[in-house]
Amino acid sequence: MVAALIAALLGPLAPQAAALAPQAQAHDQDPDRAVIGGYPVRAASHPWVVALSSRDRFGSSRSGQFCGGALVGPRTAVTAAHCLSRNVLGVEPSQVRDLRVITGRGDLSGTSGKEIPVASVRVNPEYDSGTNKGDIAVLRLSSAVPQKSVIRMAEKNDPAYRAGTPADVFGWGDTTGSGSYATTLRAARVKVMEDAVCARAYPGSDKGTFDAATMLCAGVESGGRDACQGDSGGPLIASGKLVGLVSWGVGCGERGRPGVYTRVSAVAHVVRAQGG
């Protein structure tokens, strides 16, 4: 069932289903991660939040957005590795002719901001699609963004990872868990949860397996605030730093089922290896 949980992250494709390859359409109805219980935010206030886009693969609706990401260097963005899988794209990343990172565009129906072509893609060679460990990919941009648009990655043992730390997750995903995708950028306030809480929520078997070394959880005890379909790869920010990338989970905003994120400190070496 772990594989099914990972496949469930492909929900961002639902709004553009008519434009998808058959491989991706099979996952449209699966539950995923989206911004549930969130509120609209201005892209200008959060310039490091980006949308991954391909109109060729996903149509022109919502600027072709299919996943989120974050700028961690003037020419470096990060997203979830599973966003660049054949299951999501229908083809290998190298075959996507118009893969772009959109910056500064809060409203995906508009034309503000910039669409920067992706010059190269490196999926973490240690990424395990069966367990979702190491769920990160690094995108090298064809042109640079200003340094002020970059978010710093939290290092190992940073206080931002402490349980109880307030955090915000950003994205353009499903706002209800039933396919109501946002056109404008949204955020939800959650908090970093104790590893033990996450381990109880995801002990293995059909619920997936939480791995504290490479993952972290965030949410609220009562549920109702979470990432969802369309938010995969998007940033989790705590204490002004990037601590996580939307990765996997069960449902959207369910009580006792916090969102699971890639622990950025565990994969920062992948980014540094690409010069980010």
Rank of each mutant, 00 (worst) to 15 (best):
M153R: 00
Q16S: 15
S265G: 14
R140V: 04
L141P: 05
Q229C: 07
Q274N: 09
P74M: 07
S232F: 03
S232T: 04
Q23M: 09
V271F: 11
T262E: 09
A43E: 03
A26N: 08
W48M: 08
A160L: 03
D56A: 13
L236P: 05
R152Q: 13
C198Q: 08
D211Q: 10
P40L: 08
G219F: 10
V190H: 10
G64C: 14
S178N: 14
I6L: 06
K191Q: 14
E126W: 05
D135I: 01
A167I: 00
V91P: 06
R33M: 10
S53G: 12
G104P: 05
A44K: 10
D174P: 10
R162P: 00
R86G: 10
A266I: 01
G11F: 04
S85R: 01
S180K: 15
Y181E: 06
T209Q: 15
L141T: 02
C198P: 14
V271G: 08
A119T: 01
D32W: 06
S178L: 07
D174K: 08
G110F: 03
V50E: 12
L216R: 00
D168S: 13
A14N: 10
V197R: 08
P203H: 11
A43F: 10
M193Q: 13
V246C: 11
C252M: 08
V220C: 05
A51I: 00
A199R: 12
A34V: 01
V190A: 13
G240T: 00
V243G: 02
I6F: 06
R33F: 06
L84P: 09
I6T: 12
Y39G: 09
G219R: 09
T209C: 11
L185P: 13
A154F: 04
G134A: 02
K114F: 02
F210L: 00
D174S: 15
F210T: 04
G177E: 14
I151S: 04
N87W: 04
P15D: 09
Y161R: 02
C198L: 05
Y161N: 07
V150W: 15
R255W: 06
P47N: 09
V150Q: 11
M215A: 01
G134H: 02
G38M: 05
D168Y: 09
S54T: 07
E254S: 13
S112P: 01
R186A: 13
A227M: 11
R97I: 02
I36T: 12
A81V: 02
S178H: 15
A154E: 03
D226K: 07
R62K: 05
T131I: 00
V246K: 10
E115S: 15
S129C: 10
L99A: 08
P166Y: 06
E155L: 13
S112W: 05
L71K: 06
S61E: 08
L13S: 14
A17G: 13
D98V: 06
